[in-house]
Design a protein around this nucleic acid. Structure first.
Lengths: 362, 362
DNA sequence: TGAGGGCTCTGCAACGATGCAGACATAATG
DNA sequence: CATTATGTCTGCATCGTTGCAGAGCCCTCA
């Protein structure tokens, strides 16, 4: 089962182990003649370097881990795809772990018996673990956090400006003349920081338009899945005065909401306009197609990987807070058939303004 | 950066390295007193075993690789999720690679400089690489193939009975009275074996119903993406006699087709009924919801991982051809609002019959 | 009392690769 | 021609861990 080693090749070619290693790696100067002889032996035995041994010697593995809650949530799948590509570009491969958003699964990643020592670094999309706990445990491996939580400077962190994203999406609905705008996806508890930022943006948009937010139109959901979006929408439709528009905190909630609306015989967007966040591919092909806030996923993946590699190389000073641009993509679920093809609003500008306005967000 | 080693702990606790190792692993008998002293030192230094060194010594890594074409294709994301879970249950972790269906990316996995030596085994979902080539190269690592291609016995292989799946889906459309049934997704070339099996099933269903297949209604697509499904549907609608039903070879094609239909003002299923394959979650929430053939993804993942681990342990004789059950799930895209909730047809029976009828399929 | 046995604990070698320093032969230099 | 520089090649030590064999020690039993 075990393949040939340098020793085997050396014996066959009648040279030292070290010379074979030099040929394999193209290191020290080796005469053409000898190189050829070694090469023949390499080919004959079909030698493949044992990377584990190489790693042990070099102290690094060329692998990073990516921990996401659920790989079959399209946003994470699309993000994982980009992370793998970005890592590849730097010669790294990616091990993927699923935490299911469970705190103890997230803890396991950092625990004593984890495989953390097999990886040069960890990209973590934390859902349940708290900042303090992560700080207390996460001292063994370079870590970069993705998109969730506020860890006030303890770890490098890559995300969009969630307040601005929600504010712009809400403003879009208000500009269309909608006046009973609901929000689906709030999470008013410790580990729901991202959701709370989006709620803040939702309120900001109302405030700037001089409108009041009706609290009964803000619906909490423990997760961001299609089913919960549908259920939340059904609850909203049961209100005495149902909404005429909904901001959903991600696209899955939005698609679930649309499903509930069409099932209930409501037209989207005529009766109720719907906007999501994430820009998953599914939203381009749904009926109606989905207006959404598109985070720059490629940018998130690249910046996260770059930052992690810097951290691995020890080049990182103060953990950076990296804000990645986003933009509102207007499709049928808010403007109907008018949305010809890929209508885009605020491209570039939205992203640029985001960083600046983030400071203003309380 | 580098953590403490057994040597550091041994020095602190004033014992031999070997004894520390014994404590960590709970191996040889160690007196309670000494064990306690070592434990204190372990805790104090926050020792974590270097898994790379352990792996080098033991000759295995506890990691398997999963290579899929695209992680953001929902079917592969859902499958990856189950594979990760199944591997976890056996104490293995999963490294994920994306090949983009490119032959040279698939070759890379097996090539001399690949990281294959870092993994105990490889689960491969091959799209482009040919059987011969795989056989010629794939001798270094235990391999199990997923769902694609026929490799006539060279490698263990896990898949559904594609002929039966397509036949049952087509039969469902015919039983609804549709008489101009189209197929989207054929791939009449070397690496399109799976698609060809589905086309065979499509033809079988017609034959059994005593109907002719109209070849102009079979549309080829190089990939199974939403956009191609939409484009294929548009081409079908442009025919002098457009179809009244479509079998799409996966759900993404089907969702693209539905999108094209609604855009063109056709009603689904009234004007055209649509059925897919894969049962991705998206199809439950689309409008209309999608009738589809559901492969037993959990079963595929489990059987594949189990088989791979057997192969790693050297317990595998002749490479098995494993057929996993499937079932037709009827939703709105074929029967309209009649589909209450999760209407299911042929559950179990379909799966059972699948294996038996596979033999009959030429 | 002394041989045998069980229980703890230890040191050495090894997994397969690479870093380093040096050996040896040849070429360049004064 | 002696000396230094240059170019090839090699052996040893090492990464951090575990397998193996054996060293002490205390206890038991004839």
């Amino acid at each position: 089962m075990a393949g040939p080693t340098l020793r085997d090749v050396a014996k066959l070619a009648n040279v030292s182990i070290r010379t074979v290693s030099n040929v394999v790696n193209g290191y020290a100067p080796v005469s053409a003649e000898l190189r050829a002889r070694v090469q023949v032996a390499l080919d004959q035995l079909d030698y493949r370097p044992n990377l584990i041994a190489r790693n042990l010697k070099q102290g690094r593995t060329g692998m990073i881990a990516l921990a996401v809650p659920e790989l079959d949530v399209p946003y994470f799948a699309e993000l994982a795809r980009e992370v793998i590509k970005a890592a590849h570009a730097h010669g790294y491969v990616v091990m993927i772990d699923q935490t299911d958003g469970a705190a103890d699964r997230e803890r396991e990643l950092l625990g004593r018996d984890s495989r953390a020592t097999m990886f040069d670094g960890l990209l973590l999309s934390p859902l349940s673990i708290s900042a303090d706990e992560l700080r207390a445990r996460g001292n063994s491996v370079p870590i970069v956090l993705l998109g969730e939580h506020i860890f006030n400077g303890s770890f490098p962190h890559v995300a969009i400006d969630n307040v601005a994203a929600a504010r712009e999406a809400t403003a879009h609905l208000l500009e269309l003349g909608r006046r009973r705008v609901a929000a689906i996806g709030d999470q008013p508890y410790a580990t729901g920081e991202t959701a709370q930022l989006r709620t803040a943006g939702f309120r900001q948009a109302h405030a700037r338009a001089g409108l009041d937010v009706r609290d009964e139109l803000i619906v909490s959901t423990p997760h961001f899945h299609r089913r919960l979006g549908a259920e939340a929408m059904e609850r909203l439709l049961a209100l005495p005065e149902p909404p005429d528009a909904v901001l959903c905190y991600n696209d899955l909630l939005a698609l679930g909401a649309i499903r509930a609306l069409t099932r209930a015989g409501r037209r989207v967007p005529d009766d109720v306009a719907v906007v999501g966040v994430d820009d998953i591919e599914e939203g381009q092909y749904s009926t109606p197609s989905l207006t959404t806030v598109a985070p720059d996923k490629v940018g998130i993946a690249r910046r996260a990987v770059d930052t992690l590699l810097e951290s691995i190389r020890g080049e990182l000073g103060t953990p950076p807070e990296i804000v990645v641009p986003h933009r509102l993509i207007v499709r049928e679920s808010t403007v109907g058939e008018r949305a010809v093809g890929e209508g885009t609003v605020g491209e570039g500008a939205a992203g640029d303004s985001a960083a600046g306005e983030a400071a203003a967000a309380r």
